[in-house]
Amino acid sequence: MTRTSFNKTSLETSLEAMQGGLGEPVYQSQRIFRSLMDAMARPGTIKPVATDARSPLPMLPLTAAVLATMADADTPVWLDGTMKDIGALNDWLTFHVGAPLVDEPDAATFAVLSGKRDMPALESFAKGGQDYPDRSATLLIQVERLENKPDWSLSGPGIKDTQSLAVSPLSPLFVAQWQENHKLFPRGVDVVFVAPDTIACLPRTTAITLGHPASSDKQDH
């Protein structure tokens, strides 16, 4: 079921929703797509991406810019609990992206979620079939920081030897869920981590090996 959001209670709301789209959308979306393509082709590399999009909180402007670049009326979008009931955000997405917003995670082509503790399980999203593995969701996971620290050692197609990546904050269940997702190949979901100014990707082909993070919780033992 699609959820339309025509709760335009006032003219103000709708005027607000019209602000903050991509400036020079043709060129900006091309630049954003190329960063995304490079990031997907080289998993774990951190790509700085600039945008002038301004979307209502708690969606990051960069997440909104990625959606405006990739999603449209053909691609159902799912928002997590922190975002789905924000009327201003729904209005903004309706106007600038035009994608149907859906309640069921497995109906979505793109899903936007916060990386924090209560992140829904990866397996709740569309993984595609063995015959059409491309019919699978791309998850945009909003985080605060992306760093090339060796919390994770990544390997797989697109990575010469190994690639280090640290993502925070991120649900402690993510890595275990990712291993299951990785095993499903060619089925599975693909992830784009979105930080305020950078993105990094994990296509389903990428294997995560836990590294030795220099963080304090490891030294407690």
């Binding site: 979306s29 091309q30 797509f33 997907m40 593995p133 491309d134 197609p157 693909d190």
Partner: peptide, 21 residues
């Protein structure tokens, strides 16, 4: 047009994620 590009761009990203498919 932009809608066509978005459709092709989505196919390219899935193609990269599923090499050879």
């Amino acid at each position: 047009d932009e809608q066509t590009k978005r459709m092709i761009r989505r196919a390219i990203l899935k193609g990269i994620a599923i090499p050879g498919y």
